[in-house]
């Protein structure tokens, strides 16, 4: 009851924090996609580079988010951005690299060699091969990587409230510091619901983007 009252009274705030949360994750994962997909494609050309890049990305993902924020504070302070929006976005961008790079790399590498040979045989240049055949076929798996990144980082972004980035984590951190279970629970539930909705929304997008003749 108390919780419902709280939700009712603070709906505006909750919606505003949700919007903040979404925009933070969207910007960060968006940037991660723009960087991770080309990296994933590039490393299909060189096995050694692929091993190194995937290894580094796996290491990054094992760093606890709090530690990562802590590491960035002194670095970004030099440009006056030690806390707030920028470190939050950078952290999520880094965490997103592994699922996106790995899925892109795997998807491109797993394109049926016969199709790759057919593409070469009809006289496609390497870039045409990517654009006309390899990337369209890899889209379902790449999108699955993006989905993983989004769902995972909606949780991570909740912690970024501690460095003043805003988002639904604000409710959680206040709930803890003020010993107010209503805020804590409202924040936690909102984060979970957001994750589930984002997952479904991206699944829908994934199906939309998958070429018709390709099974998702």
């Amino acid at each position: 009851m108390e919780l419902l009252d709280f939700l009712n009274d603070n709906l505006d705030l909750i919606l505003q924090l949700t919007a903040e949360h979404i925009s933070l994750v969207a910007v960060a994962v968006g940037l991660a996609t723009v960087t991770g997909v080309p990296i994933g494609i590039a490393i299909t050309q060189n096995e050694r580079a692929a091993r190194i890049v995937l290894y580094v990305a796996s290491i990054i993902i094992t760093i606890p988010s709090i530690a990562l924020f802590g590491l960035m504070i002194p670095l970004l302070s030099t440009i006056g951005q030690g806390i707030g929006y920028l470190p939050a976005v950078i952290a999520v961008l880094l965490y997103s690299q592994l699922p996106i790079i790995r899925n892109t790399y795997t998807a491109i590498n797993n394109v049926n060699p016969a199709l790759r040979e057919a593409a070469r045989g009809v006289g496609m240049s390497p870039l045409q091969r990517l654009r006309m055949v390899e990337v369209p076929l890899a889209i379902p798996v790449i999108m699955a990587g993006v989905r993983t990144a989004v769902v995972m980082n909606i949780g991570v972004m909740a912690i970024a409230a501690y460095i003043g980035a805003g988002g639904l984590g604000v409710l959680i951190s206040r709930g803890i510091s003020q010993s107010d279970p209503r805020q804590l629970i409202a924040g936690a539930i909102a984060v979970s619901i957001l994750a589930v909705i984002a997952d479904y929304a991206l699944l829908w997008l994934q199906r939309r983007l998958t070429p018709k003749g390709v099974s998702a």
Partner: peptide, 17 residues
Amino acid sequence: RRNIGYVIQQIGLFPNM
């Protein structure tokens, strides 16, 4: 290659087209 027709055993039609 654009001037040589090429048919492979695995057929290799592009499934996205």
